[in-house]
Design a protein around this nucleic acid. Structure first.
Lengths: 338, 338
DNA sequence: ATGAAAAGAAGAAACGTTTCGTTTATATTT
DNA sequence: AAATATAAACGAAACGTTTCTTCTTTTCAT
């Protein structure tokens, strides 16, 4: 069955410690190096991670806690993070919090008991209490996509407010004044709302309460319901453009305007977040703020890896990435009307 | 730091073996039971999985290899499976194959080296060679959603051909004769195509080559491109209904007909697979064959758990579930025309 | 050629459990 | 009450590594 380091010892005649040393990157005499390599190949030897972990207190496994994996954004991020982890030889245990704080706390506890070396988390919670048990166990944590205000934690996020502001300013530059916003009350949703408000204020445009629609969570139905509300406004007040804070919301919006036979960008302009595959065939092609998903993943993994290697005295890292605008055909230039 | 079983020994004065025995469900004297439980609580003791695993050769971790996690179907299935696993105290290492056979094979190898206790896989490959290394290591494997023809493996699938046939017969019953099909060349896609063909043949309807459109993989663009091709047919030949083999494909189809200003079900009827959230707001609401996702997940987990407990002599289990039709508003009844 | 310094190899102990063979305590029978 | 059967506790060995200390070999300068 499974060959062990003792088999390598028998095969090469060397001491266990010598073999172990070489296998972990130490120096041995060239002749011995060759012997060991041959034996490893011949016996198809792979170190037993459990025995190794028992001593080193490392599992070579990290935990990934995600607010919701069944959504497109989460799925894609999981994909990237998982890939990078595997490339580094780390296993990734995934825990879906289902947008629920209690489940999230359980997930952390579970991972701590599993003795993962580190945890990557896209949090649901906005306070850090749920991380206590990981803290006590001295397990490094990196949050991504969302950060926890005031927490002393590594994090990788994008500048949501700035991105939203850019998006709304893009509308304003094209002559829009009656601009509505649909967003969630989650971390990213609220930040993007702030960007929307900043842009409006800066341009001297008022924000009518009836132009903001929000629900707890980003969802298709948020976009759908919100749009119906907005379209139900008296014709004069009807927004000429809608800014929405997430891809799934955008789907809902498109469904709603299709249903009502309203054309985009003819009757209404749209601008959203995240260029996911659907955008490719969506008509009109949505103008979006594109988040650098791959970079978010790779930065988070990089930081976690660095912290795993570090001897505990690495400074907190907060990486702030930015989204960029990708033009589609969903925004009408109102200036050309004149 | 971390307390060990030796601390429990010190606290209770009992032998290691007695404590271990109790902790693993053995019988001890009531007095000792109490002592141990108190000590465990007091010291917040959790067994070290690595030490335990070193002896039992179990990691209490399973691998989940999925063809593509960034898709909606995969994401949702992962969600269910992950949940069940966590409830059973198992960690789940997730590996995304990115629809690539080579990556899939690497994933299996990776999991074998990680010494997972079992593997759940939604395969990309249609032959079982990539599983060889898991076989050699004697790691139980259960496939779900897709099975590998001829393989001697536990699997949980739905009867795709029957489901597709039901769907197409539903169209035929309502007077449709010119029925097109859009499907992928993947396992599920081809099975569903067969169901389509069966239904057509059974009804004595011919299958024109121009009524079938297929690409390698289920995707939004498959639906989109396929629909455009179908709509480009001379008016007389144009299908009155389209059967499509997957949810993402359906999105593409809807995009395409929206773009061309064709109405559903007025001008064309649609029937598809999988009732995912988007259906709730999609207009018209799609008539779909609903797969019992949660049941697929729970059956697969149940079988894997049973096999982990079994002493190797359990018979191969092949569970075949069925999809059910959920009516929406996307199919027109042509009989009422007369 | 000699000795000191550096590099490499060896051996044993440790990591935290489970398991197995043995001994001791309790329960049952006559 | 003694003998036997049963149940529980014990102690040591084992799982497959890494790590620490000691011992040996090689290298290099003199």
């Amino acid at each position: 069955m499974e060959s062990t380091i003792k088999d390598i010892k028998r095969e090469t005649g060397l001491a266990l410690s010598t073999i172990s040393k070489y296998l972990n990157g130490g120096n041995v005499r060239p002749e011995n190096r060759k012997k060991i390599e041959e034996a490893v190949k011949k016996l198809d030897y792979h170190p037993n991670e459990m025995a190794r972990g028992l001593i080193t207190r490392k599992t070579r496994t990290i935990g990934f806690v995600i607010y919701d994996i069944s959504g497109t954004f989460g799925g894609l991020l999981t994909h990237f993070v998982g890939d990078l982890m595997r490339q580094s030889g780390y296993g990734m245990i995934i825990c879906d919090s289902n947008n629920d704080k209690d489940i999230e706390a359980q997930n952390i506890k579970f991972l701590v008991e599993k003795k993962v070396d580190g945890i990557l988390v896209i949090p649901v919670s906005s306070d850090e209490d749920f991380l206590d048990c990981a803290r006590r166990a001295d397990i490094p944590i990196v949050t991504l996509d969302r950060s926890i205000p005031g927490a002393h934690l590594d994090c990788v996020t994008i500048d949501n407010a700035a991105a939203a502001q850019t998006a709304v300013e893009y509308l304003i530059e094209r002559g829009h004044e009656k601009i509505a916003a649909i967003y969630s009350e989650e971390y990213t949703g609220k930040q993007r709302r702030d960007g929307y408000r900043n842009a409006m204020k800066k341009a001297g445009l008022g924000i009518s309460g009836s132009y903001e629609y929000h629900e707890k969570i980003h969802s298709v139905s948020l976009g759908y319901t919100g749009t119906k509300k907005l379209l139900a406004l008296p014709k004069k007040e009807r927004p000429t453009a809608i800014f929405m804070s997430n891809y799934e919301v955008a789907l809902g919006v498109v469904m709603a305007i299709n249903e009502q036979g309203i054309s985009c960008p003819g009757d209404i302009s749209l601008i959203s977040f995240d260029a996911l595959t659907l955008n490719l065939v969506m008509k009109p092609m949505m103008t979006v703020m594109v988040q650098p998903m791959e970079e978010i993943a790779s930065e988070a993994v990089r930081i976690l890896m660095a912290r795993l290697q570090s001897d505990g005295q690495m400074a907190i890292q907060r990486v702030l990435l930015s989204a960029e605008l990708r033009e589609g055909d969903s925004v009408r230039d109102l200036r050309s009307r004149r």
